[in-house]
Write a protein that binds this DNA or RNA. Structure first.
Lengths: 197, 197
DNA sequence: GTTTTTGCACTGACCAGTCAGTTTAAGAAG
DNA sequence: CTTCTTAAACTGACTGGTCAGTGCAAAAAC
């Protein structure tokens, strides 16, 4: 009921989010304990439960927060650009986001396609919102003739979203020595080829 | 050789693999209990431990088995084909594989990019073998001039591997009503565009 | 003086792994 | 064909440990 949340409390919640996202990205939701999260956040266990109803709720709010941010960045990236450029901007925005919130991206990649988990419904909805931004861009690009007419909007959108995630996380996990600019350049090259009319 | 005893044991192991792959795909490794696996396989818990050293070993053998199969299909798919056609064959092989072993593909997508797990080393190695088949094809295609010269081999290979997984699993999880042929056609269209010199 | 955090003991459910005992396949002996 | 023997395969109750979540008094922050 006490929704007049103080700055201090907001700080604590933020620290808990950060601790949780790192641990869950590394180990997965089930393997991560509430004690671990509290310890990494430098906070007592009771504080976790003072700030969140349960471990699951903490995770759901984390998902909402993280994907909300991504969707917002997608929206900002495409604003006012013609479709072809908007597409490149989306790729850059996605990589930039993943670079900034690498642990969250890793977590997303691992939990996105799971079934039979409590939070699946939440995740499905959020995914839809993020992909819709991509789909709108592709759709209008095809309509205007700025993108190839035979491009399948649904597949292309989920492919674009997915390929960014996979390539970037793959880079983080398996080729961390490689500069991100390389990866970005290579990926943009591929996307540009697909976008060619 | 075809001793009734060892055949029985092989059957049991197979049933355990199938039960484990389904459950782990749905819930993840940590959230899946050995009791669940035993129950779904229609076998007592002790039998799991009679056939496998531990839950982790069961999972590692599962990974080896599953990715070994995928690598073999990749090899068979590209055999004797010129690079451009080999690339299309790889996409088809990957989708066909995912259609046949959908739960395993889902599991792979979820566990592939995790860090800090006991089996990470195993997975890394196996992933390398599968992607190497793709990389060889791309590399020789670029060398022969059959694929665009500016294509980055490492990124393109992991992107191709990843995009297949993502698009196919995405289809399985979020658009199961859609015919696979659609998805395959759309994906092939995209890959063909990338392959154009 | 109200909100937030701490520290810590406690509970009850759950779960990986064990082990003493039972069943089964397959062959040997009668 | 029937009975006996053996080893492999399987069973399921049990153990020791872990972990989500609770309760609460005292302290710190605002």
């Amino acid at each position: 009921m006490t929704d007049g949340r103080s700055r201090r409390r907001e700080d604590t919640r933020q620290r808990l989010f950060e601790a949780a996202v790192q641990l869950i990205a590394e180990q997965g939701f089930s393997a991560t304990t509430v004690d671990d999260i509290a310890a990494r956040a430098g906070v007592a266990k009771g504080t976790v439960y003072y700030n969140f109803e349960s471990k699951t709720v903490l995770f759901e709010e984390l998902l909402r927060h993280g994907i909300g941010l991504l969707t917002a960045e997608f929206r900002a990236a495409v604003a006012g650009l013609p479709p072809r450029e908007a597409l490149a901007a989306l790729v850059r925005a996605e990589l930039e986001y993943i670079r900034r919130y690498r642990a969250f991206a890793q977590l997303l990649l691992s939990e996105m396609w799971r079934t039979n988990r409590e939070w699946q419904q939440t995740l499905r909805l959020l995914r839809g919102e993020a992909i819709e931004v991509i789909a709108e861009t592709v759709r209008s690009g095809v309509a205007v003739g700025d993108l190839p007419a035979d491009l399948d909007v649904r597949t292309a959108s989920s492919a674009l979203f997915g390929v960014g995630l996979v390539v970037a996380v793959d880079w983080l996990v398996f080729q961390p020595d490689r500069p991100i600019e390389d990866v970005e350049e290579a990926l943009l090259g591929i996307v540009r080829r697909v976008a060619r009319t």
